[in-house]
Design a protein around this nucleic acid. Structure first.
Length: 590
DNA sequence: GCCGTTTTCGGCCCGACTGTTTTCAGTCG
C-alpha cells in the first residue's frame, strides 16, 4: 500500500471521527499524521519492512503506528470499519462542501437520513433541509451552489493559471479608493504548485467600505460570497475564489505573515511567541500584562510590540525573516532562530536551460529561434533535447536523423556568439530500462536526458528497477520529470524515489525539477531529499515553444521551496564548470 | 491522539463572517 493511500485512509477516519463528534484534538492528531505521511520521501512499506520505529516520525505515536502497520499487513483498518458502522463513509463527501461542516453533516444525516451529495441535493430541493433547525432558505441556496461548484471545479488551480487570472484584478484593486498597498498572501505567495483560493491583502485606513465595494465591483466577479468591514470573498467567472482582507497600516505586516501561512508555520511561530509571553494574531504582536487571560481580552489588547512590517514580527520574536517559500513548518522556524536559513537559489543564478524541444520533434520553434530566445534570456548554454523515436507520435529523432540535426545545430551555433548549444536528446526509458537510442549516437551527444513516457502503470518495484537501470547507462546525465505526474490530471507513477535518488548520487547523475507548471516534478519534498543526499538538481523548462522558456521561474520557485541554494543546482554552473561536469565520467573511467 | 524548557497529565493557535438558535454556534481560513 502506498503512502498516499495510507494517508487517505487516515484522513477518512479523521473525517468520520469528526462527524461523530470526537475530541477535536484527536481529530487534529489524525490531520497531523496525514501531513507527516504525505511529506515522507520513503515508502512506509519499505520502512516497516526494515523494521524501523514509526513513532520516531513526528505526529506518529503508538496508535498511528499500529494503524499504519495494520494497513500494510492487511490492507484494511479495523478501527475504520468500527467507525464506519456508526457513521456512513459517504458522509465525508458532504463535509467537503462549502458551508457544510461536521456538525451540519451529522444533523443532515441524523434528521433526514442524507448520506450522499446526491441525496443532499434532493433534500435541499424538496424543502426538507430548509425546515431543519439551524438551516434556512439562505443556507439551502448556498449549499446548492457549493454542490454545483463541487461538480464543476473539483480541483485546484495551477499557479500559472492563478498568475494569469489575478493580474487584471490586482490592476483593478490598485486603482481602488484609499488603497495604500496590495499584496497576495496565502499559498500563492508561498509559490505552491496548485492554489485553492487567493488571499488578497489591501492596506487602507479602516473603516473602508469603498475598498470592499470596489473589490466586489470587479468585472470578472461571478458572485459575492461575503462582504464585511474587513473581509470579503468573491468567486471569479473562472471559478477561482478570491478573499480580500482590508488591513490598517499598523497591522499590515502581521496580517501579511498571518495570511501567508502556512497554518502549520503560524502555529509554530505562535508557540514561540507564547513562550515569550507574547500573543501573535493578524493585528500585531502584543505583550500581555501579568495575570491577564488572553481569551478574556480584545484582539488588540496589551502592549503592541510589532505588526507594521513582516520583518518586525519576526524580529520581536528573535527570528530571522523567513522567505515565504519556506513557511511550511519543516524546520524553517528553528533555522530562523539559529540564523541558519539557506541562501536560496534565484532566477538570476540560472546560467542555462538543459531540456527543450524544437520542430525536430514536437516543439513549435526552430533550433535557431530557441537558441536566440535562450541567448536573450542571458543564458550561457542550452541543451537542444528533442525526443527519441519511441515517441513516434511526436516525430522523435531517429539515429539517422540525429546527424542531420547536429548539422543544423552547428550552423546555428556558427551564427551565434555568447551561448553554447549542447547536442542533446530526451531519450525514452523503455520497459526494461534500456534506452531508446543507439550507443553510438548517445556517445556523440554532449548531454543525455532520459525520462519515462510509457507504461506508467508498472508496479513500484519494476518501475524503480527500470529507472535505475536506465541511469546506470554511462552516457546519462539527467533524469527528467522523475515521477511523471501531471498536476490535476495524472498521479505520479509508483516509484521508490529514495532508491532512485541514492542511485543518482552514486552514479553522479542529476535529477530534474521540470519547471513546467503542469509538472513541477520533482516535488519539493523529493528535491529537498536530493539535496540532503548530495544529488545535483537541474531546473529545466522542457519548453516546447519560445514562450515556455519563461517557465524557468516556476522551477526556481519549486527549488526554493525545497531549500536549494545555488550550489545545489546544476545549471547555475558557468559554461566552463558545466563542460567539466559533462566530462566527469571520462576522468573516472580513464 | 500526540507530546514534553508547561514533561507522563493536561494542554493542544486565533479571529471574522454568516445565518439564525435574538446572544451564539458553525464554518472557514
Amino acid at each position: 500500500m502506498e503512502n498516499i493511500e495510507i494517508a487517505g485512509v487516515l484522513e477518512e477516519l479523521g473525517d468520520l471521527l469528526e462527524i461523530n463528534g470526537s475530541n477535536p484534538f484527536r481529530i487534529r492528531a489524525y490531520r497531523n499524521a496525514v501531513r507527516t505521511v504525505l511529506g515522507l520521501t520513503r515508502s512506509l512499506s519499505a520502512m516497516v519492512e526494515a523494521e524501523e520505529d514509526l513513532t520516531e516520525l513526528p505526529a506518529i505515536g503508538k496508535d498511528m503506528s499500529a494503524h499504519i502497520v495494520e494497513l500494510l499487513e492487511t490492507g484494511e483498518l479495523a478501527r475504520l470499519a468500527e467507525v464506519a458502522a456508526e457513521v456512513p463513509r459517504s458522509l465525508v463527501q458532504l463535509v467537503k462542501l462549502d458551508g457544510v461542516g461536521p456538525k451540519k453533516t451529522k444533523k443532515l444525516w441524523e434528521s433526514l437520513g442524507v448520506t450522499t451529495v446526491d441525496e443532499l441535493e434532493k433534500a435541499l430541493k424538496d424543502g426538507r433541509v430548509e425546515s431543519l433547525e439551524g438551516f434556512g432558505a439562505t443556507s439551502v441556496e448556498k449549499i446548492l451552489t457549493s454542490i454545483e461548484d463541487f461538480r464543476r471545479y473539483s480541483g485546484r488551480f495551477l499557479i500559472s493559471q492563478v498568475d494569469e487570472l489575478i493580474g487584471p484584478l490586482l490592476a483593478h484593486m490598485r486603482e481602488g479608493p484609499g488603497v495604500e498597498r496590495i499584496e497576495v498572501a496565502g499559498s500563492y505567495r508561498r509559490r505552491k504548485e496548485t492554489i485553492g483560493d487567493v488571499d488578497l491583502l489591501v492596506q487602507a485606513e479602516l473603516p473602508a467600505p469603498a475598498v470592499m465595494e470596489h473589490f466586489t465591483a470587479f468585472g470578472s466577479v461571478d458572485r459575492v460570497v461575503a462582504a464585511g468591514d474587513t473581509r470579503g470573498a468573491v468567486v471569479l467567472r473562472s471559478g477561482l475564489e478570491v478573499d480580500l482582507r482590508v488591513i490598517p497600516g499598523r497591522s499590515f505586516g502581521a496580517a501579511l505573515h498571518y495570511f501567508t501561512g502556512s497554518k502549520e508555520h503560524n502555529v509554530a511561530v505562535r508557540q514561540i511567541a507564547q513562550r515569550q509571553g507574547l500573543r501573535v494574531n493578524e493585528w500585531g504582536v502584543f505583550r500581555m500584562p501579568e495575570g491577564v487571560d488572553p481569551d478574556e481580552v480584545g484582539k488588540e489588547e496589551g502592549e503592541r510590540v510589532a505588526g507594521g512590517t513582516e520583518e518586525s514580527v519576526f524580529d520581536v520574536l528573535d527570528l530571522a525573516w523567513v522567505p515565504p517559500v519556506l513557511r511550511e513548518n519543516r524546520g524553517e522556524v528553528e533555522a530562523a532562530r539559529d540564523d541558519s536559513l539557506p541562501d536560496l537559489v534565484t532566477l538570476e543564478d540560472i546560467q542555462g536551460d538543459l531540456h527543450m524541444h524544437s520542430t525536430w520533434s514536437d516543439g513549435k520553434a526552430s533550433v535557431e529561434e530557441m537558441a536566440q530566445a535562450c541567448r536573450a534570456r542571458g543564458y550561457r548554454y542550452m541543451a537542444m533535447s528533442d525526443h527519441s523515436p519511441a515517441l513516434a507520435m511526436v516525430g522523435g529523432i531517429t539515429p539517422e536523423r540525429a546527424a542531420d540535426q547536429w548539422e543544423e545545430i552547428a550552423r546555428v551555433q556558427e551564427g551565434l556568439d555568447g551561448i553554447t548549444i549542447f547536442k542533446s536528446l530526451e531519450v525514452d526509458i523503455l520497459r526494461d530500462g534500456s534506452l531508446d537510442m543507439t550507443d553510438e549516437v548517445l556517445e556523440a551527444l554532449d548531454l543525455v536526458v532520459v525520462s519515462v513516457h510509457s507504461l506508467m502503470d508498472m508496479d513500484r518495484v519494476s518501475m524503480t528497477d527500470r529507472v535505475i537501470t536506465a541511469i546506470q547507462h554511462p552516457q546519462v546525465d539527467i533524469l527528467a520529470h522523475p515521477t511523471g505526474r501531471l498536476l490535476a490530471r495524472r498521479e505520479p507513477f509508483q516509484i521508490e524515489m529514495e532508491e532512485v535518488l541514492q542511485a543518482a548520487r552514486d552514479l553522479n547523475v542529476a535529477v530534474e525539477i521540470n519547471a513546467s507548471p503542469h509538472r513541477l516534478d520533482l516535488n519539493d519534498v523529493h528535491a529537498h531529499r536530493a539535496k540532503e543526499l548530495g544529488v545535483r538538481v537541474c531546473i529545466s523548462t522542457d519548453a516546447h515553444s519560445v514562450q515556455r522558456l519563461d517557465h524557468m521561474s516556476y522551477g526556481v520557485d519549486q527549488a526554493r521551496r525545497a531549500w536549494l541554494n545555488k550550489g545545489d543546482v546544476l545549471n547555475t554552473m558557468t559554461l566552463k564548470q558545466m563542460q567539466v561536469w559533462l566530462d566527469r565520467r571520462k576522468g573516472t573511467s580513464a
